[in-house]
Structure formats: C-alpha cells, structure tokens
Simulated scan of single mutants.
Amino acid sequence: MHSSLPAGPPPIREPFHAPVAHLVRGGAVEGVHYGSVVVLDAAAEVRFELGDIRAACYPRSALKPVQAVAMVRAGLPLEDGLLSLAAASHSGEERHLAGTRRILELAGLTEDHLRNVTDLPFDPVVRDAWVRAGRPPSRLAQNCSGKHAAMLYTAKLNGWSLDGYLDPVHPLQQAIAETVEDLTGQRVATVTVDGCGAPLFSVSLRGLAVAAARLTTAAPGTPEARVADAMRAHPGMASGSRRDVAALMRAVPGLLAKDGFEGVQVAALPDGRAIAVKIADGASRARVPVAAGALALAGVDASLLAEFTGEPLLGGGRPVGEVRLVPALDPEALPARA
C-alpha cells in the first residue's frame, strides 16, 4: 500500500465541463459533446486538463480494476483470464459465462449466490442470439457477474457473510473503499449504488487516472501488477471480442484501459502516463475518440490510434459527417510521437 495518507475528498458540485468534441454533419456543427479530460505524465503531474478534473464523479465500471486489486489484497487467488474477468464489464460471451461459473465453483458456490441484477448479454450480437434461443435474462449474463463472483469468492475465503456482500458496511466493501482511497490518493466523496447493485465510490477524474497509473507502475507480483497484467494479457476477458476497450489495449503496447457507463474511460501506460475521460452526456461515440486524443497528448503515436477516431455519421447509408475533437484534443494536429 501507499504510505501517504489520502487527501480530502473531491468537491461535490456540478462539474465545469467544457466542449470536447463536435458532431459535424454536412460541414456544420449539429451537436456538442461536453466533458472533462486529464492527462498525467510519468510523475503523476497534470500534463493537460480540460473541463473539471477535480470535482467528484462516479467512475462506474472504470473503477473495477481498483476493486479487483482490493480483492487480491484480501486473498483472492485468481490469475490470468479469471482475474481479468473479475475486473470486467464483460460482453456475455460463452467464455465469460464459463469463467464466472468457474470462479463460483472454486468458491464452492453457485449462480444462486449472486446478487447482481439480471440482464441479457451486453454484446448486441450475443444478445440477439440469446433472445432467438429463448434464453431469459440472468445474473450470469449481466456484464458485472465476474466481479460479483470474485466478490463472493473473496468473502468466502475470509469467512465474511455472503448474503450481505453488497452492503457498504460489509468488510469486503470496506476493504474496497480503503483501496480506492489508497490508490486514488483521496478520500471518497460519496457512496451510492452502481447499476449492478454494488457500492459505487465517487472520486475525481484526476484521482481515477492516478489509480490506473499506480496499477501499471507497481512492482511485479503485487496485487496492482497482477490485476494490470491479467487485464492486458486477456483484454477480451475484461470486455469482449467486439469491444473498443479490448481493441485499444491490443493496439497500444502495454496499455491498461477500462471503460465505464456514462462516458467514462481510464487508461495508463507502463511508465505511469495516464488519461481519464468523462463525457457529460454519457455518449460512447464521443468517449472513444476523446480518449484516443488524450492518449495522443500523453505521447502515444497517433498512428496506433487511427481506428479509434470515431465511426462516421451516416445519412442515407453513406458518410455525411463525423465526431470531431476540439482542436486541443485533435491527434491529427500533433506530430507523430514514439
């Protein structure tokens, strides 16, 4: 753990978001995406900021790697793909379901012990096939089931209650809160409930980026390094076959990346350079290109990010526009970097 005490909590306020991307159709700006962006250098100093990187925000699933670190610190023995799945917002592919079943089996538990919400698979192709087969929503198919199975396994190993593992005062959730504060370097501002039913802790966007950097720069064999290594080695288990976050980790050597609902993205390089993004309206169509722009500002070669500049805006089935970054974030305005 980090020896310095966490700073005070980030302020709870309406964030001072700024324009980060324009929706351009036929040469005219049709819409504006607001948000906030932070880029940290290898010394964890702010290299670039736009919007409000210091207000409290909910990282949503972008915090899952930190939650996984807390579980490993508490004795979770998972490795490789199963540890990546413990930090996943998975797509509901059969490998994700099989992996979640395996975690439960290792704990001597079943799907009936899960307390996450029921849902259909997140991936639209998998979801359509699921519906055609007449399969109902289930806790196993919901995108957070790997995390919940790992939470149950951690609770079982420590002799903690299984029924109440999602209660904020449960020893597991207290351990997670302590790890969030340790890795972000700041106190949690508020605690609420995430979409899956687990406690959700608010931190600043800067704190989220700091936490990601601490995972990628941790000493080999530490819980932080184990989680980062598992996710980078098995990006498809941390997300899915058709997910942009997996493609991003494959495209940029050594990159750790995690997305979250409501337009959140965090990523960190092996030397500690890190970025975090929050899109105010929660739109993924802006999240991906804005994150790519931030990574270019962090020094990633823009050619590695070419496929993440955003999908074209269609009119009548043909491209008529695009999501265009504000000039400060536009990687095409930057020289290629090593």
Rank of each mutant, 00 (worst) to 15 (best):
R13S: 06
E14Q: 10
P15C: 03
P15A: 10
H17V: 05
A18C: 10
A18R: 13
P19K: 00
V20Q: 01
V20S: 06
V20A: 02
A21K: 03
A21M: 10
A21G: 06
A21E: 02
H22R: 10
H22S: 13
L23F: 00
L23G: 09
V24H: 06
V24Y: 10
V24C: 10
R25P: 14
G26P: 13
G27S: 14
V29Q: 10
V29R: 12
V29M: 10
E30N: 06
G31T: 03
G31A: 15
G31Q: 14
G31S: 13
H33G: 15
Y34E: 15
Y34H: 15
G35M: 07
S36G: 06
S36V: 07
V37K: 03
V38A: 08
L40D: 08
L40M: 04
L40R: 02
L40Q: 03
D41M: 03
D41V: 01
A42T: 10
A44T: 12
A44P: 04
A44E: 15
A44V: 05
A44K: 13
E45N: 12
V46Y: 02
V46M: 01
R47T: 03
R47N: 02
F48I: 08
E49Q: 14
E49G: 01
L50F: 03
L50W: 00
G51A: 10
G51M: 04
D52I: 00
R54M: 02
R54G: 13
A55H: 11
A55T: 13
A55V: 02
C57P: 11
C57T: 15
C57L: 14
C57Y: 15
Y58I: 12
Y58T: 12
P59V: 07
R60A: 09
S61M: 02
S61L: 02
A62F: 00
A62M: 05
L63T: 03
K64V: 07
K64Y: 04
K64D: 11
Q67M: 14
Q67D: 13
V69Q: 14
V69G: 09
M71N: 09
R73D: 13
R73Y: 09
R73G: 05
G75R: 13
